[in-house]
Design a protein around this nucleic acid. Structure first.
Lengths: 109, 109
DNA sequence: TAAATCCATCAATTTATATTGATGGATTGT
DNA sequence: ACAATCCATCAATATAAATTGATGGATTTA
């Protein structure tokens, strides 16, 4: 049961990709507070249903959200463990560094 | 000097977008260990220089890397504080949750 | 000064993603 | 059974991102 060693983890890339689009980020920010059905999200975001459905699929394929059916509604909610995976991936960058990045006063580039 | 309140933070989206492409992820993983010049990266990744340059620009625009010139070389390094920004953005999703997602026994790496 | 190296940028093409409106499956209420 | 609601999927189009080869600026070496 050998686990492949750090190919730039597909699942991580899929996660970041899913979070690289403004509407999808709005979706997860809404879901942060409540489980919501698609029609709730459509109303809140004022977008067409098919458009939202498309983006929800991207989020779901990336493992960031789950869905559950109740009657004719499908409720979406966050899959927090996947957010943790991404968070931990990022945290490893810090671990390699001798010092935490100095917080520049004038942080211009 | 009013700071806009949580528009799905452009800088966060740009960061996730930058990390949503395999070659760019390989770049930051290499830079995690060492500051490197473009020609080092070209050699390590076996890609054309113009291609790499394009992706480095994406990473730089997202604030994830810095560059510094030394003679005719341009050295790239991580800007860890931006990684921390992304990490903290993700960590806020956890904060809303009543329970931390169960850590599955079988997904250690 | 001339040649070589390192790199960013440009324009043209290819490839990937997103948007739109339409269709149909599943569920519920009449 | 029929109509209405909720949703995913499809095909066509539009938009965005990546790749490629070429060009030129800046720096170093001969």
């Amino acid at each position: 049961m050998v686990k492949a060693v750090s190919l730039p983890a597909e699942v991580v890339i899929a996660g970041f990709h899913a979070l690289s689009e403004p509407l999808r980020v709005k979706v997860v920010e809404l879901l942060r507070e409540n489980e919501l059905c698609v029609c709730d999200l459509c109303a809140a975001l004022e977008v067409a249903q098919s458009k939202l459905s498309f983006h929800l699929k991207t989020l779901k394929d990336a493992g960031l959200v789950r869905s559950r059916q109740e009657g004719r509604w499908i409720y979406y909610s966050l899959n927090l463990s996947q957010f943790v995976v991404l968070e931990q991936y990022l945290s490893e960058f810090r671990r390699y560094s001798p010092i935490l990045p100095a917080r520049s006063c004038s942080d211009e580039d």
